[in-house]
Design a binder for these strands. Structure first.
Lengths: 231, 231
DNA sequence: CGCGAGCTTGACGTTGTTCAACTAGAGTGG
DNA sequence: CCACTCTAGTTGAACAACGTCAAGCTCGCG
Protein backbone atom coordinates (compact mmCIF):
# COMPACT_ATOMS: atom_id res chain seq x y z
CA UNK A 1 0.00 0.00 0.00
CA UNK A 2 0.92 3.60 -0.46
CA UNK A 3 2.70 5.09 2.50
CA UNK A 4 2.12 8.60 3.80
CA UNK A 5 4.89 10.91 4.75
CA UNK A 6 5.88 14.54 5.05
CA UNK A 7 9.59 15.09 4.96
CA UNK A 8 11.45 18.30 4.14
CA UNK A 9 9.62 21.60 3.79
CA UNK A 10 8.88 22.64 0.20
CA UNK A 11 10.95 25.74 0.79
CA UNK A 12 14.09 23.63 1.05
CA UNK A 13 13.12 20.99 -1.49
CA UNK A 14 15.72 20.77 -4.20
CA UNK A 15 13.37 18.78 -6.39
CA UNK A 16 11.20 21.82 -6.90
CA UNK A 17 9.91 21.53 -10.42
CA UNK A 18 9.98 24.35 -12.91
CA UNK A 19 6.46 25.45 -12.24
CA UNK A 20 7.00 25.93 -8.52
CA UNK A 21 10.09 28.04 -9.08
CA UNK A 22 7.76 30.91 -9.93
CA UNK A 23 6.17 30.98 -6.52
CA UNK A 24 6.94 33.50 -3.78
CA UNK A 25 8.24 32.14 -0.50
CA UNK A 26 4.96 32.67 1.29
CA UNK A 27 3.14 30.87 -1.52
CA UNK A 28 5.51 27.95 -1.17
CA UNK A 29 4.74 27.91 2.53
CA UNK A 30 1.05 28.01 1.69
CA UNK A 31 1.12 24.85 -0.41
CA UNK A 32 3.48 23.17 2.01
CA UNK A 33 0.69 23.24 4.56
CA UNK A 34 -1.72 21.09 2.60
CA UNK A 35 0.87 18.99 0.82
CA UNK A 36 1.74 15.43 1.69
CA UNK A 37 4.03 12.82 0.31
CA UNK A 38 3.00 9.37 -0.82
CA UNK A 39 5.15 6.40 -1.62
CA UNK A 40 3.99 3.94 -4.27
CA UNK A 41 5.12 0.45 -5.08
CA UNK A 42 5.53 -0.80 -8.61
CA UNK A 43 2.20 -1.18 -10.35
CA UNK A 44 0.20 0.86 -7.88
CA UNK A 45 -2.29 3.39 -9.15
CA UNK A 46 -1.71 7.07 -8.33
CA UNK A 47 -4.69 8.47 -10.19
CA UNK A 48 -7.61 6.50 -11.56
CA UNK A 49 -9.40 7.54 -14.71
CA UNK A 50 -12.92 8.66 -13.86
CA UNK A 51 -12.00 9.22 -10.22
CA UNK A 52 -12.20 12.54 -8.39
CA UNK A 53 -9.54 15.10 -9.23
CA UNK A 54 -8.80 16.37 -5.74
CA UNK A 55 -5.05 16.78 -5.94
CA UNK A 56 -2.24 17.66 -8.29
CA UNK A 57 0.76 15.38 -7.94
CA UNK A 58 4.41 16.05 -8.39
CA UNK A 59 6.53 12.99 -8.94
CA UNK A 60 9.60 13.29 -6.73
CA UNK A 61 11.21 9.92 -7.36
CA UNK A 62 10.64 6.89 -9.51
CA UNK A 63 8.73 6.73 -12.75
CA UNK A 64 5.11 6.45 -13.77
CA UNK A 65 3.03 5.86 -16.86
CA UNK A 66 0.01 7.91 -17.84
CA UNK A 67 -2.54 5.99 -19.86
CA UNK A 68 -6.10 6.12 -21.07
CA UNK A 69 -8.23 3.06 -20.47
CA UNK A 70 -11.12 2.03 -22.64
CA UNK A 71 -13.98 -0.36 -21.94
CA UNK A 72 -12.36 -3.07 -24.06
CA UNK A 73 -9.30 -3.08 -21.84
CA UNK A 74 -7.08 -1.74 -24.60
CA UNK A 75 -4.97 0.97 -23.05
CA UNK A 76 -3.12 3.81 -24.70
CA UNK A 77 -0.05 5.07 -22.88
CA UNK A 78 0.13 8.84 -23.37
CA UNK A 79 3.48 9.41 -21.76
CA UNK A 80 5.98 8.37 -19.13
CA UNK A 81 6.66 10.82 -16.32
CA UNK A 82 9.91 11.30 -14.47
CA UNK A 83 10.82 13.50 -11.51
CA UNK A 84 10.03 16.27 -11.11
CA UNK A 85 7.14 16.48 -13.44
CA UNK A 86 3.75 17.74 -12.37
CA UNK A 87 0.82 15.42 -12.95
CA UNK A 88 -2.49 17.12 -13.38
CA UNK A 89 -4.86 16.57 -16.21
CA UNK A 90 -7.53 18.18 -18.33
CA UNK A 91 -10.19 17.69 -15.68
CA UNK A 92 -8.77 20.74 -13.92
CA UNK A 93 -11.40 23.46 -13.77
CA UNK A 94 -13.65 21.41 -16.06
CA UNK A 95 -15.27 18.45 -14.38
CA UNK A 96 -12.79 17.76 -11.56
CA UNK A 97 -12.32 14.18 -12.66
CA UNK A 98 -9.32 12.34 -14.00
CA UNK A 99 -9.31 11.61 -17.70
CA UNK A 100 -6.42 9.20 -17.52
CA UNK A 101 -4.92 6.78 -15.05
CA UNK A 102 -1.42 7.01 -13.64
CA UNK A 103 0.49 3.98 -12.38
CA UNK A 104 3.90 3.74 -10.76
CA UNK A 105 6.34 1.81 -12.95
CA UNK A 106 8.70 1.32 -10.04
CA UNK A 107 9.08 2.35 -6.40
CA UNK A 108 8.06 6.01 -6.55
CA UNK A 109 7.20 8.97 -4.37
CA UNK A 110 4.95 11.87 -5.18
CA UNK A 111 3.86 15.04 -3.44
CA UNK A 112 0.13 15.61 -3.45
CA UNK A 113 -1.12 19.16 -3.44
CA UNK A 114 -4.71 20.04 -2.76
CA UNK A 115 -6.40 21.19 -5.92
CA UNK A 116 -8.02 24.16 -4.20
CA UNK A 117 -4.70 25.39 -2.94
CA UNK A 118 -3.24 24.94 -6.38
CA UNK A 119 -6.14 26.81 -7.96
CA UNK A 120 -5.62 29.62 -5.49
CA UNK A 121 -2.04 29.98 -6.68
CA UNK A 122 -3.04 30.04 -10.33
CA UNK A 123 -5.48 32.80 -9.50
CA UNK A 124 -3.14 34.93 -7.45
CA UNK A 125 0.20 34.51 -9.19
CA UNK A 126 0.11 35.59 -12.83
CA UNK A 127 3.53 34.26 -13.70
CA UNK A 128 2.61 30.92 -12.22
CA UNK A 129 -0.62 30.87 -14.22
CA UNK A 130 1.18 31.68 -17.46
CA UNK A 131 3.74 28.96 -16.83
CA UNK A 132 0.96 26.53 -16.06
CA UNK A 133 -0.69 27.38 -19.38
CA UNK A 134 2.65 26.96 -21.07
CA UNK A 135 3.00 23.51 -19.64
CA UNK A 136 -0.48 22.46 -20.70
CA UNK A 137 0.17 23.74 -24.20
CA UNK A 138 3.49 21.95 -24.45
CA UNK A 139 1.73 18.74 -23.50
CA UNK A 140 -0.82 19.38 -26.22
CA UNK A 141 1.89 19.88 -28.84
CA UNK A 142 3.38 16.54 -27.89
CA UNK A 143 -0.06 15.01 -28.09
CA UNK A 144 -0.46 16.29 -31.65
CA UNK A 145 2.79 14.62 -32.62
CA UNK A 146 1.78 11.38 -31.01
CA UNK A 147 -1.59 11.50 -32.68
CA UNK A 148 -0.05 11.96 -36.11
CA UNK A 149 2.37 9.13 -35.45
CA UNK A 150 -0.31 6.72 -34.30
CA UNK A 151 -2.86 7.52 -36.99
CA UNK A 152 -0.67 8.03 -40.05
CA UNK A 153 2.32 5.76 -39.65
CA UNK A 154 2.42 2.04 -39.90
CA UNK A 155 3.83 -0.27 -37.30
CA UNK A 156 7.52 0.08 -38.07
CA UNK A 157 7.28 3.86 -37.85
CA UNK A 158 5.27 3.73 -34.66
CA UNK A 159 7.67 1.36 -32.91
CA UNK A 160 10.57 3.52 -34.09
CA UNK A 161 8.81 6.52 -32.56
CA UNK A 162 8.36 4.90 -29.19
CA UNK A 163 11.97 3.70 -29.14
CA UNK A 164 13.11 7.22 -30.00
CA UNK A 165 10.79 8.67 -27.37
CA UNK A 166 12.23 6.37 -24.73
CA UNK A 167 15.84 7.03 -25.65
CA UNK A 168 15.55 10.76 -26.39
CA UNK A 169 13.09 11.95 -23.79
CA UNK A 170 12.89 9.38 -21.03
CA UNK A 171 16.10 7.47 -20.49
CA UNK A 172 18.28 9.97 -22.37
CA UNK A 173 20.54 7.24 -23.63
CA UNK A 174 20.57 4.84 -26.55
CA UNK A 175 21.05 2.06 -24.04
CA UNK A 176 18.59 1.66 -21.22
CA UNK A 177 17.09 -0.70 -18.70
CA UNK A 178 13.35 -0.45 -18.39
CA UNK A 179 10.53 -2.22 -16.73
CA UNK A 180 8.09 -1.49 -19.46
CA UNK A 181 6.56 -4.78 -20.54
CA UNK A 182 6.04 -5.73 -24.17
CA UNK A 183 2.41 -4.89 -23.62
CA UNK A 184 3.47 -1.41 -22.49
CA UNK A 185 5.56 -0.93 -25.61
CA UNK A 186 2.51 -2.00 -27.60
CA UNK A 187 0.27 0.39 -25.65
CA UNK A 188 2.67 3.23 -26.41
CA UNK A 189 2.47 2.36 -30.09
CA UNK A 190 -1.22 1.53 -30.46
CA UNK A 191 -0.85 -2.05 -31.60
CA UNK A 192 -1.07 -5.55 -30.17
CA UNK A 193 1.66 -7.06 -28.05
CA UNK A 194 2.31 -9.69 -30.71
CA UNK A 195 2.81 -7.09 -33.42
CA UNK A 196 5.16 -5.06 -31.23
CA UNK A 197 7.25 -8.17 -30.57
CA UNK A 198 7.45 -8.97 -34.27
CA UNK A 199 8.62 -5.48 -35.24
CA UNK A 200 11.19 -5.42 -32.46
CA UNK A 201 12.47 -8.76 -33.65
CA UNK A 202 12.77 -7.45 -37.21
CA UNK A 203 14.72 -4.44 -35.97
CA UNK A 204 17.03 -6.78 -34.11
CA UNK A 205 17.54 -8.97 -37.17
CA UNK A 206 18.36 -5.86 -39.19
CA UNK A 207 20.97 -4.83 -36.63
CA UNK A 208 19.11 -1.62 -35.73
CA UNK A 209 18.59 -2.49 -32.09
CA UNK A 210 19.62 -5.06 -29.54
CA UNK A 211 17.41 -6.07 -26.65
CA UNK A 212 16.46 -8.65 -24.12
CA UNK A 213 13.53 -8.90 -21.77
CA UNK A 214 14.22 -5.73 -19.82
CA UNK A 215 16.82 -3.69 -21.67
CA UNK A 216 17.17 -2.03 -25.03
CA UNK A 217 20.15 -0.79 -26.96
CA UNK A 218 19.75 1.30 -30.08
CA UNK A 219 22.63 0.43 -32.38
CA UNK A 220 21.69 2.47 -35.42
CA UNK A 221 19.98 5.68 -34.45
CA UNK A 222 20.05 7.08 -37.96
CA UNK A 223 18.07 4.32 -39.64
CA UNK A 224 15.65 4.37 -36.74
CA UNK A 225 15.03 8.07 -37.37
CA UNK A 226 14.67 7.36 -41.06
CA UNK A 227 12.07 4.67 -40.34
CA UNK A 228 10.24 7.14 -38.12
CA UNK A 229 10.21 9.68 -40.96
CA UNK A 230 9.11 7.38 -43.76
CA UNK A 231 6.37 5.97 -41.58
CA UNK B 1 -8.67 37.28 -50.99
CA UNK B 2 -9.50 37.97 -47.41
CA UNK B 3 -11.19 41.30 -46.88
CA UNK B 4 -10.48 43.60 -43.94
CA UNK B 5 -13.18 45.29 -42.00
CA UNK B 6 -14.09 46.71 -38.63
CA UNK B 7 -17.78 46.90 -38.04
CA UNK B 8 -19.55 47.15 -34.69
CA UNK B 9 -17.66 47.78 -31.47
CA UNK B 10 -16.97 44.66 -29.39
CA UNK B 11 -18.96 46.22 -26.59
CA UNK B 12 -22.14 45.89 -28.62
CA UNK B 13 -21.29 42.66 -30.36
CA UNK B 14 -23.94 40.07 -29.68
CA UNK B 15 -21.67 37.34 -30.96
CA UNK B 16 -19.45 37.70 -27.96
CA UNK B 17 -18.22 34.24 -27.15
CA UNK B 18 -18.26 32.72 -23.71
CA UNK B 19 -14.70 33.62 -22.94
CA UNK B 20 -15.17 37.32 -23.61
CA UNK B 21 -18.19 37.50 -21.36
CA UNK B 22 -15.82 37.54 -18.43
CA UNK B 23 -14.17 40.79 -19.43
CA UNK B 24 -14.83 44.19 -17.87
CA UNK B 25 -16.10 46.92 -20.14
CA UNK B 26 -12.77 48.71 -20.25
CA UNK B 27 -11.07 45.44 -21.14
CA UNK B 28 -13.50 44.93 -23.97
CA UNK B 29 -12.65 48.41 -25.17
CA UNK B 30 -8.99 47.55 -24.89
CA UNK B 31 -9.18 44.58 -27.23
CA UNK B 32 -11.53 46.42 -29.54
CA UNK B 33 -8.72 48.82 -30.33
CA UNK B 34 -6.38 46.24 -31.80
CA UNK B 35 -9.03 43.94 -33.20
CA UNK B 36 -9.99 43.71 -36.83
CA UNK B 37 -12.37 41.65 -38.84
CA UNK B 38 -11.44 39.49 -41.79
CA UNK B 39 -13.67 37.87 -44.35
CA UNK B 40 -12.63 34.56 -45.88
CA UNK B 41 -13.86 32.74 -48.93
CA UNK B 42 -14.34 29.01 -49.04
CA UNK B 43 -11.07 27.16 -48.94
CA UNK B 44 -8.98 30.10 -47.78
CA UNK B 45 -6.46 29.61 -45.03
CA UNK B 46 -6.91 31.51 -41.77
CA UNK B 47 -3.92 30.11 -39.92
CA UNK B 48 -1.10 28.15 -41.43
CA UNK B 49 0.67 25.41 -39.50
CA UNK B 50 4.23 26.47 -38.77
CA UNK B 51 3.40 30.13 -39.33
CA UNK B 52 3.72 32.88 -36.73
CA UNK B 53 1.10 32.96 -33.99
CA UNK B 54 0.44 36.69 -33.85
CA UNK B 55 -3.31 36.71 -33.33
CA UNK B 56 -6.12 34.81 -31.72
CA UNK B 57 -9.18 34.52 -33.94
CA UNK B 58 -12.83 34.39 -33.09
CA UNK B 59 -15.04 32.98 -35.80
CA UNK B 60 -18.06 35.26 -36.13
CA UNK B 61 -19.76 33.65 -39.11
CA UNK B 62 -19.33 30.63 -41.35
CA UNK B 63 -17.45 27.47 -40.53
CA UNK B 64 -13.84 26.33 -40.56
CA UNK B 65 -11.84 23.17 -40.21
CA UNK B 66 -8.78 22.77 -38.02
CA UNK B 67 -6.32 20.21 -39.28
CA UNK B 68 -2.78 19.00 -38.84
CA UNK B 69 -0.71 18.58 -41.96
CA UNK B 70 2.10 16.11 -42.33
CA UNK B 71 4.91 15.99 -44.87
CA UNK B 72 3.20 13.21 -46.79
CA UNK B 73 0.17 15.39 -47.42
CA UNK B 74 -2.05 13.23 -45.25
CA UNK B 75 -4.07 15.58 -43.11
CA UNK B 76 -5.88 14.92 -39.88
CA UNK B 77 -8.89 17.12 -39.17
CA UNK B 78 -8.99 17.80 -35.44
CA UNK B 79 -12.29 19.60 -35.33
CA UNK B 80 -14.77 21.84 -37.06
CA UNK B 81 -15.33 25.28 -35.58
CA UNK B 82 -18.54 27.27 -35.63
CA UNK B 83 -19.37 30.78 -34.43
CA UNK B 84 -18.47 32.01 -31.97
CA UNK B 85 -15.63 29.77 -31.09
CA UNK B 86 -12.19 31.08 -30.28
CA UNK B 87 -9.33 29.75 -32.37
CA UNK B 88 -5.99 29.77 -30.65
CA UNK B 89 -3.68 26.87 -30.38
CA UNK B 90 -1.02 25.27 -28.23
CA UNK B 91 1.69 27.57 -29.56
CA UNK B 92 0.38 30.22 -27.16
CA UNK B 93 3.08 31.13 -24.69
CA UNK B 94 5.24 28.27 -25.96
CA UNK B 95 6.82 28.91 -29.34
CA UNK B 96 4.39 31.44 -30.82
CA UNK B 97 3.78 29.31 -33.86
CA UNK B 98 0.73 27.55 -35.15
CA UNK B 99 0.63 23.81 -34.71
CA UNK B 100 -2.31 23.32 -37.00
CA UNK B 101 -3.84 24.97 -40.04
CA UNK B 102 -7.30 26.47 -40.18
CA UNK B 103 -9.27 26.79 -43.42
CA UNK B 104 -12.65 28.33 -44.09
CA UNK B 105 -15.17 25.72 -45.20
CA UNK B 106 -17.50 28.39 -46.51
CA UNK B 107 -17.79 32.17 -46.65
CA UNK B 108 -16.69 33.14 -43.14
CA UNK B 109 -15.72 36.09 -41.01
CA UNK B 110 -13.41 36.16 -38.04
CA UNK B 111 -12.21 38.77 -35.59
CA UNK B 112 -8.47 38.84 -35.12
CA UNK B 113 -7.14 39.91 -31.76
CA UNK B 114 -3.51 40.75 -31.21
CA UNK B 115 -1.85 38.03 -29.16
CA UNK B 116 -0.12 40.54 -26.88
CA UNK B 117 -3.40 42.21 -26.05
CA UNK B 118 -4.92 38.81 -25.39
CA UNK B 119 -2.00 37.82 -23.19
CA UNK B 120 -2.43 41.05 -21.27
CA UNK B 121 -6.02 40.11 -20.51
CA UNK B 122 -5.06 36.63 -19.35
CA UNK B 123 -2.55 38.21 -17.00
CA UNK B 124 -4.82 40.88 -15.56
CA UNK B 125 -8.18 39.15 -15.38
CA UNK B 126 -8.12 36.04 -13.24
CA UNK B 127 -11.59 34.88 -14.17
CA UNK B 128 -10.72 35.24 -17.82
CA UNK B 129 -7.54 33.24 -17.30
CA UNK B 130 -9.37 30.46 -15.50
CA UNK B 131 -11.98 30.27 -18.23
CA UNK B 132 -9.24 30.20 -20.82
CA UNK B 133 -7.63 27.27 -19.04
CA UNK B 134 -11.02 25.62 -18.86
CA UNK B 135 -11.43 25.93 -22.57
CA UNK B 136 -7.99 24.51 -23.29
CA UNK B 137 -8.68 21.58 -21.00
CA UNK B 138 -12.04 20.88 -22.56
CA UNK B 139 -10.35 20.76 -25.94
CA UNK B 140 -7.83 18.29 -24.55
CA UNK B 141 -10.57 16.03 -23.21
CA UNK B 142 -12.12 15.95 -26.67
CA UNK B 143 -8.73 15.22 -28.12
CA UNK B 144 -8.36 12.20 -25.83
CA UNK B 145 -11.67 10.84 -27.05
CA UNK B 146 -10.71 11.37 -30.65
CA UNK B 147 -7.36 9.74 -30.06
CA UNK B 148 -8.96 6.65 -28.57
CA UNK B 149 -11.43 6.47 -31.42
CA UNK B 150 -8.79 6.77 -34.11
CA UNK B 151 -6.29 4.39 -32.57
CA UNK B 152 -8.50 1.69 -31.09
CA UNK B 153 -11.54 1.44 -33.31
CA UNK B 154 -11.71 0.08 -36.77
CA UNK B 155 -13.16 1.87 -39.73
CA UNK B 156 -16.85 1.33 -39.08
CA UNK B 157 -16.50 2.68 -35.58
CA UNK B 158 -14.45 5.64 -36.71
CA UNK B 159 -16.89 6.64 -39.45
CA UNK B 160 -19.74 6.25 -36.98
CA UNK B 161 -17.87 8.58 -34.64
CA UNK B 162 -17.42 11.29 -37.23
CA UNK B 163 -21.05 11.03 -38.30
CA UNK B 164 -22.11 11.33 -34.68
CA UNK B 165 -19.70 14.22 -34.16
CA UNK B 166 -21.16 16.06 -37.13
CA UNK B 167 -24.76 15.49 -36.15
CA UNK B 168 -24.39 15.91 -32.37
CA UNK B 169 -21.85 18.69 -32.10
CA UNK B 170 -21.68 20.52 -35.40
CA UNK B 171 -24.93 20.54 -37.31
CA UNK B 172 -27.06 19.57 -34.32
CA UNK B 173 -29.43 17.57 -36.46
CA UNK B 174 -29.56 14.06 -37.83
CA UNK B 175 -30.06 15.60 -41.26
CA UNK B 176 -27.58 18.10 -42.56
CA UNK B 177 -26.10 19.74 -45.61
CA UNK B 178 -22.34 20.01 -45.54
CA UNK B 179 -19.54 20.99 -47.81
CA UNK B 180 -17.14 18.56 -46.31
CA UNK B 181 -15.71 16.51 -49.14
CA UNK B 182 -15.28 12.74 -48.93
CA UNK B 183 -11.62 13.42 -48.36
CA UNK B 184 -12.57 15.59 -45.39
CA UNK B 185 -14.70 12.82 -43.93
CA UNK B 186 -11.71 10.53 -44.40
CA UNK B 187 -9.37 13.07 -42.76
CA UNK B 188 -11.72 13.27 -39.79
CA UNK B 189 -11.61 9.49 -39.48
CA UNK B 190 -7.94 8.80 -40.24
CA UNK B 191 -8.43 6.61 -43.28
CA UNK B 192 -8.29 6.90 -47.05
CA UNK B 193 -11.01 8.53 -49.08
CA UNK B 194 -11.82 5.21 -50.73
CA UNK B 195 -12.27 3.43 -47.43
CA UNK B 196 -14.52 6.20 -46.12
CA UNK B 197 -16.69 5.92 -49.22
CA UNK B 198 -16.96 2.16 -48.85
CA UNK B 199 -18.06 2.34 -45.22
CA UNK B 200 -20.58 5.08 -45.96
CA UNK B 201 -21.97 2.92 -48.74
CA UNK B 202 -22.29 -0.04 -46.38
CA UNK B 203 -24.13 2.10 -43.87
CA UNK B 204 -26.48 3.21 -46.63
CA UNK B 205 -27.10 -0.37 -47.75
CA UNK B 206 -27.86 -1.31 -44.15
CA UNK B 207 -30.38 1.50 -43.90
CA UNK B 208 -28.46 3.30 -41.19
CA UNK B 209 -27.89 6.48 -43.14
CA UNK B 210 -28.94 8.15 -46.34
CA UNK B 211 -26.73 10.55 -48.24
CA UNK B 212 -25.80 12.12 -51.50
CA UNK B 213 -22.82 14.20 -52.50
CA UNK B 214 -23.39 17.05 -50.10
CA UNK B 215 -25.94 15.97 -47.53
CA UNK B 216 -26.33 13.31 -44.91
CA UNK B 217 -29.31 11.92 -43.08
CA UNK B 218 -28.91 9.61 -40.14
CA UNK B 219 -31.85 7.21 -40.18
CA UNK B 220 -30.92 4.93 -37.34
CA UNK B 221 -29.09 6.81 -34.62
CA UNK B 222 -29.17 3.91 -32.21
CA UNK B 223 -27.31 1.39 -34.36
CA UNK B 224 -24.84 4.11 -35.25
CA UNK B 225 -24.13 4.63 -31.56
CA UNK B 226 -23.86 0.91 -31.10
CA UNK B 227 -21.33 0.69 -33.93
CA UNK B 228 -19.39 3.51 -32.30
CA UNK B 229 -19.32 1.59 -29.02
CA UNK B 230 -18.36 -1.80 -30.36
CA UNK B 231 -15.58 -0.25 -32.46
C1' DC C 1 -20.48 19.94 -75.40
C1' DG C 2 -16.30 18.97 -73.54
C1' DC C 3 -13.29 19.44 -69.51
C1' DG C 4 -11.90 18.74 -64.87
C1' DA C 5 -12.57 17.80 -60.06
C1' DG C 6 -14.52 15.07 -56.94
C1' DC C 7 -16.87 10.67 -56.37
C1' DT C 8 -17.31 5.60 -56.89
C1' DT C 9 -16.06 0.88 -57.75
C1' DG C 10 -13.34 -3.38 -58.17
C1' DA C 11 -9.28 -6.14 -57.97
C1' DC C 12 -5.33 -6.91 -55.61
C1' DG C 13 -1.62 -6.94 -52.27
C1' DT C 14 -0.08 -5.52 -47.89
C1' DT C 15 -0.62 -4.67 -43.10
C1' DG C 16 -2.09 -5.93 -38.80
C1' DT C 17 -4.96 -8.86 -35.58
C1' DT C 18 -6.53 -13.14 -33.65
C1' DC C 19 -5.96 -17.46 -31.85
C1' DA C 20 -3.57 -21.16 -30.27
C1' DA C 21 0.47 -23.30 -28.94
C1' DC C 22 4.84 -23.22 -26.94
C1' DT C 23 8.86 -21.40 -23.97
C1' DA C 24 11.38 -19.43 -20.17
C1' DG C 25 11.85 -17.71 -15.69
C1' DA C 26 10.10 -16.57 -11.06
C1' DG C 27 7.75 -17.72 -7.22
C1' DT C 28 5.34 -21.42 -4.01
C1' DG C 29 4.37 -25.28 -1.36
C1' DG C 30 5.31 -29.99 -0.18
C1' DC D 1 15.18 -29.81 -3.75
C1' DC D 2 11.68 -30.81 -6.85
C1' DA D 3 7.29 -30.50 -9.05
C1' DC D 4 3.76 -27.07 -9.92
C1' DT D 5 1.81 -22.87 -11.31
C1' DC D 6 1.66 -18.41 -13.08
C1' DT D 7 2.95 -14.79 -15.86
C1' DA D 8 5.37 -12.58 -19.61
C1' DG D 9 7.40 -13.40 -23.82
C1' DT D 10 7.54 -15.60 -28.37
C1' DT D 11 6.18 -17.86 -32.67
C1' DG D 12 3.31 -19.41 -36.62
C1' DA D 13 -0.72 -19.86 -39.39
C1' DA D 14 -5.06 -18.19 -40.78
C1' DC D 15 -7.79 -14.48 -41.53
C1' DA D 16 -9.67 -9.89 -41.54
C1' DA D 17 -8.88 -5.10 -42.19
C1' DC D 18 -7.11 -1.57 -44.88
C1' DG D 19 -4.57 0.85 -48.53
C1' DT D 20 -3.18 1.19 -53.40
C1' DC D 21 -3.93 1.50 -58.04
C1' DA D 22 -6.43 1.99 -61.99
C1' DA D 23 -10.55 2.71 -64.26
C1' DG D 24 -14.95 4.64 -64.91
C1' DC D 25 -18.50 7.83 -63.42
C1' DT D 26 -21.10 12.30 -62.47
C1' DC D 27 -21.95 16.87 -62.54
C1' DG D 28 -21.12 21.68 -62.63
C1' DC D 29 -18.94 25.06 -65.37
C1' DG D 30 -16.77 27.31 -69.06
Amino acid sequence: MAIFNKSTHCLYCNLKMNLFRFLEDDQIKFINKTRYEVRFHKGEIMFKQGGPFTHIACLTSGMAKIYIEDPEKKNLILKIVKPTEIIGGPGFNVDSRHHFSVAAMEESTACFIDINAFTELVKTNTTFAMEFIKQINTTTINLYNKMMSLTHKQMHGRIADTLLYLSDSIYESTEFETNLSRQDVADLSAMTKESAIRILKEFKEDGIIEFNTSSFHILNLETLRKISKTG
